[in-house]
Amino acid sequence: MPHSIKRIFTWIFWIFVLWAIFTSPNRAADLVLTIWEIILNGFNAIAVFFDRLLGG
């Protein structure tokens, strides 16, 4: 993907993020918390997997 197209999509993404925060801050915060929980649960699952794999 050419660099200019990537830059345009990056700007569109950040404009959308700012729009979402300004128009609905509570929903935006809920979304960030939900994404954070998904990431933490994923790392937790990986840790449990390797712990059991290594006989812990």
Rank of each mutant, 00 (worst) to 15 (best):
M1D: 06
N41Q: 09
F43G: 01
R27K: 13
N26P: 00
R52S: 04
I38Q: 00
D30R: 09
F13Q: 03
W19N: 12
L40E: 15
P25N: 07
D51P: 00
W14L: 11
I39G: 00
V32F: 15
V17K: 01
V48R: 09
L53W: 09
F49T: 02
V17T: 03
T10G: 02
L33Y: 13
A28G: 05
V48F: 08
M1S: 11
A47Q: 03
L33H: 13
G55H: 01
A20I: 10
L40G: 10
F49L: 04
P2F: 04
A20F: 12
F49Q: 00
I12L: 15
S24V: 06
F9M: 13
R7V: 05
A45C: 02
R52C: 02
L54E: 01
M1C: 08
L40D: 11
M1E: 09
L18I: 14
F50P: 00
I46M: 12
M1I: 10
I21L: 15
L18Y: 07
S24P: 05
N26C: 05
F50G: 00
F43E: 02
A29W: 13
A28T: 08
I5K: 09
A45Q: 01
I38T: 03
S24M: 12
L40W: 13
G56F: 10
A29L: 15
L40R: 15
I21S: 10
G42I: 01
V32N: 04
R52Y: 06
M1V: 11
F13W: 02
L18G: 06
W19F: 15
T10W: 01
T10A: 04
F16C: 03
W19S: 14
W19E: 10
W36C: 11
F43W: 07
I5S: 07
A47K: 05
I39C: 05
I21R: 15
F9P: 02
W14G: 00
D30C: 05
S24Q: 15
A28R: 01
R27N: 13
H3C: 04
M1T: 10
R27H: 09
T23N: 14
L53N: 02
I12F: 10
D30P: 01
I21M: 15
G42E: 02
P25C: 05
I39N: 04
V32M: 10
T10L: 06
A45K: 03
V48A: 08
L18M: 11
I15M: 01
F16W: 07
N41Y: 07
I8T: 08
F43T: 06
R7H: 05
I8G: 00
P25Q: 07
T23I: 09
I15W: 00
L33S: 14
K6Q: 08
F50I: 09
G56V: 06
I35A: 12
G55W: 01
T10N: 06
I15H: 00
A20Y: 10
V48W: 07
R27D: 12
I21V: 15
F9K: 14
W19G: 13
N44H: 03
I5L: 14
A28F: 13
K6D: 04
N41W: 08
G56S: 07
S4V: 04
I21E: 14
W36R: 12
L54C: 00
F16M: 04
I35S: 08
M1G: 13
F13Y: 06
G55N: 04
A29T: 13
G55C: 01
E37L: 10
I5Y: 07
L33Q: 14
K6G: 01
A47I: 02
I12K: 13
F16G: 07
F16A: 09
V17F: 06
